[in-house]
């Protein structure tokens, strides 16, 4: 699926997406515009979800936040491509992207390709990515309180997914609709 958006002055667009790898393009055309993208992908078998988010900061004082989470099993291979462009004369830009992935099998893979095209100074940009298996000590912690391995894994995966709307927010508080829209309570 492909989506294009254009934000005017002080407009705020927040996308929360679950298992819908898409191609999204957003232009921030007015001062004060903010774009926030949060996505969770849970894939397995031989699936190869690809996501591309292209943000163009065309006005000063605009912000973009891209937050992608992956839970991958079997031979799944996910690709996240976050492209952030900052046009000339656009000052006071903030852009952050973060890709966190949990790989449940040794054959699962994630490719995170952040691209920054910046034609202006006074820009704050950051990107980061983490990737790994479920933390052994965290699993041990939960099991030491009496729950079996399968349940401990499930709780940790749910916690990982739930973080999608509790952290990395552009706003001091998550939006109300985000607080109520629940990630499915069990990820496989």
């Amino acid at each position: 699926m492909s989506y294009d958006f254009s934000l005017k002055e002080n407009e705020y667009l927040s996308i929360l997406s679950f298992n819908s790898p898409s191609n999204i393009s957003v232009e921030l055309c007015g001062e004060g515009a903010v774009f926030e993208y949060r996505s969770l992908l849970v894939f397995g078998e031989n699936e190869k979800p690809e996501q591309k988010v292209h943000v163009i900061h065309k006005a000063p004082n605009t912000k973009s936040f891209l937050f992608a989470k992956h839970i991958l099993s079997d031979n799944a291979k996910a690709e996240f491509n976050g492209v952030v462009e900052v046009c000339e004369y656009c000052k006071d830009i903030e852009s952050r992207q973060l890709v966190n992935s949990i790989l449940l099998s040794p054959n699962a893979k994630v490719i995170s390709k952040p691209e920054l095209k910046i034609y202006c100074d006074e820009v704050q940009c950051s990107h980061g990515s983490t990737c790994g298996a479920l933390d052994e000590d965290a699993l041990f912690y939960l099991q030491s309180r009496g729950m079996g391995l399968a349940q401990a894994e499930k709780l940790l995966l749910n916690a990982f997914a739930a973080e999608l709307h509790t952290s990395f927010s552009a706003l001091p508080m998550p939006l109300p609709f985000m607080a109520t829209s629940r990630i499915p309570s069990s990820v496989k």
Binding site: Q151, F160, T166
Partner: peptide, 14 residues
């Protein structure tokens, strides 16, 4: 350990 995203009460309940 810290486990963000897993509510303290939810955890105790489990």
């Amino acid at each position: 350990l810290e486990i963000p995203g897993l509510g303290n009460e939810e955890f105790l309940r489990a």
